[in-house]
Design a protein around this nucleic acid. Structure first.
Length: 555
RNA sequence: UGGGGUAUGGUGCAAUGGUAGCACACCGGCCUUUGGAGCCGUGGAUUGAGGUUCGAAUCCUUGUACCCCAGCCA
């Protein structure tokens, strides 16, 4: 990739800064997750921006956990987040940091601001602070504690740290402007008292810094040059700048961009947590979830997700990306790499009357027509086969190129067969199709006639039973969280379990997370629940289905 | 009604005063031992109104719409 070719407004701006020698030509970014939940596809966009921009300009990206709220954060999330970022294909080298590592420095800087008369201890309650803050249209009022002496502030702040006061009794606030139109500047809270055990610092602290006070200063300590974040922090930038300016420390440039929104899903941590806690999905890694762990289990590849992030671009406009784009990126990637294999989801027995009973032919099947390097495999062919129920119709409509009484069809990698009879049970259900095969057509096209349809199949004698999980979007509506009743819009058919499918014998020893294309059906990935003898596959995404479209149009 | 931000085909992103382009989606065709993939093609957009200019998506004026902000969350 060309390193200084701008592709978006952020890269454009950095390229310009570089020309002007800002930051001494350095480009250092950071990805700052809070360890209080799992990463999702929206984070992938941020990761792609933070790491991708650093890479493109020859700089580096730090991974820094914004762990300033001990009541919400856990080590489990730290581990999972690291795992997901690595899986996505990004590397932070030695640059793993935690905001909690800077607590002492932050405290010292707070003392400095107090000494400069720029911060004070406030005894107002949370409710009172809210009242004093004013509203969107009316200015706030100054706290009666705003003009305490430096000495008193210093003493009180030290005692806050020492644990002399209960939770919520006091806070440290910056002294800025209670009349500002920007609410973030109305004396923002810097520290609150929380007698809580932190996942890394344990009980060393009982006062914890707020985001605005911790984030910019952490960036500064790390020498970050560009602090990229989402649009809702635009209003916080004046405060970010104010803190750095008052302290006279290295001052990174904060740049905001629009977060990713995707159709047919919800993305907020709160809603994802609800889906998990209320058992609507099976967990954070349920294949229907937009979490990276869910997408991974579903069968998405890091390459596809990175490509998606590249195509989505970076801008400031509110957006809603169609799921179709993500799926396109996935299919494009899987098409090149997934081994082709035959699997029958809803089996229908075919008996080839003129094929010798007991005979087994090992036919050559190409593993991936897009990639010769993937070689070939053997597919056993016998007198009794399974084909897909949907590949047979007793009374077919026009343009149905599959099997029906009297018609011919090719069996992939094998022979052309002709349907000569249909067996039914007492209720009239088709139980078996009787066919004949043309021995001259093994792997070759007949010269005297044209046979259009090709079906996939498995030998009944050799087929392996498998469970196949068919997933659809969790929501049918493009914007499910448009209204408050988003949970009622959940797609009742987002998961369909096919218990008795058959797959070809070459899959006997397949391992979890291996990707396949089931020919004519879709891309499937081996679920972690799968074991030899009890195979389980997840449908990652279906193949584009031209027949399905014809059917729909006919309706 | 305070502050901040954003408006380009259905969706997303470009065009930085000089032919509005790309991708996905859609529609049509070709090809096909996956009705897959691939290939070719059609249609469709500058938020409204004024203005500046030879020329405006871009500059100016003025509307309109949408998003974010009143956590001791991040």
């Amino acid at each position: 990739m060309n390193s200084t070719e701008p592709q978006d407004f952020i890269r454009e701006r950095i390229a310009e800064d570089l020309q002007n020698g800002r930051f001494g030509g350095k480009v250092i970014t950071r990805f700052p997750p809070e360890p209080n939940g799992y990463l999702h596809i929206g984070h992938a966009k941020a990761i792609s921006a933070d790491f991708g921009i650093a890479r493109d300009f020859g700089g580096h990206c730090n991974l820094r956990f914004d762990d300033t709220n001990p009541t919400k954060e856990e080590q489990e999330y730290v581990d999972m987040i690291e795992h997901d970022i690595r899986w996505l294909g990004y590397d932070w080298g030695d640059n793993l940091f935690f905001a909690s590592d800077y607590f002492e420095q932050l405290y010292q800087w707070a003392v400095q601001l107090i000494k400069d008369g720029k911060a004070y201890v406030d005894d107002l309650s949370a409710d009172e602070i809210r009242e004093y803050r004013g509203t969107l249209t009316e200015p706030g009022r100054e706290s009666p504690y705003r003009n305490r002496s430096v000495e008193e502030n210093l003493d009180l702040f030290a005692r806050m740290r020492a644990g002399e006061f209960p939770d919520g009794s006091r806070v440290l606030r910056a002294k800025i402007d209670m009349a500002s139109g920007n609410l973030n500047l109305r004396d923002p809270v810097m520290y609150r008292i929380r007698h809580a055990t932190h996942h890394r610092t344990g009980d060393a602290w009982c006062i914890y810094p707020m985001y605005d006070w911790a984030h910019g200063q952490s960036d500064s300590i790390e020498g970050v040059t560009y602090s990229l974040c989402s649009m809702e922090y635009e209003d916080h930038r004046p405060l970010y700048d104010w803190f750095c300016d008052q302290l006279g420390i290295h001052h990174p440039q904060q740049i905001e961009f629009a977060r990713l929104n995707l159709t047919n899903t919800v993305m907020s941590k709160r809603k994802l947590l609800q889906l998990v806690n209320e058992g609507i999905v099976a967990g954070w890694d349920d294949p229907r979830m937009p979490t990276l762990s869910g997408l991974r289990r579903r069968g998405y590849t890091p390459e596809a997700i990175r490509d998606f992030c590249d195509r989505v671009g970076l801008a400031k406009k509110q957006n809603l990306i169609e799921l179709a784009l993500l799926e396109h990126c996935l299919r494009e990637d899987l098409n090149k790499r997934a081994r082709r294999v035959m699997a029958v989801l809803r089996p229908l027995k075919v008996m080839i009357e003129n094929y010798p009973a007991g005979q087994v032919e090992e036919l050559d099947a190409v593993n991936n027509p897009e990639d010769d390097a993937q070689g070939t495999r053997k597919a056993p062919f016998t007198r009794e086969l399974w084909i897909e129920q949907s590949d047979f119709m007793e009374n077919p409509p026009k343009k149905f190129f599959r099997l029906s009484p009297g018609t011919e069809v090719r069996l992939r990698w094998a022979y052309i067969i002709k349907c000569v009879g249909v067996d039914k049970d007492a209720e009239g259900n088709v139980t078996q199709i009787r066919c004949t095969y043309d021995p001259a057509t093994r792997g070759a096209q007949p010269t005297d006639r044209k046979v259009k349809g090709t079906l996939h199949w498995v030998s009944a004698q050799h087929a392996l039973p498998a469970e196949i999980r068919l997933y659809d979007t969790l929501f049918l509506a493009p914007k499910p969280d448009e209204d408050e009743n988003w949970k009622q819009k959940i797609n009742p058919n987002s998961l369909e379990v096919v218990k008795h499918a058959y797959v070809e014998p070459s899959l006997a020893e397949t391992q979890p997370l291996t990707h396949y294309q089931f020919e004519r059906t879709g891309y499937f990935t081996v679920d972690p629940d799968s074991k030899p003898g009890a195979l389980v596959f997840n449908r990652t995404v279906s193949l584009k289905d031209a027949w399905g479209k014809i059917e729909k149009q006919a309706e």
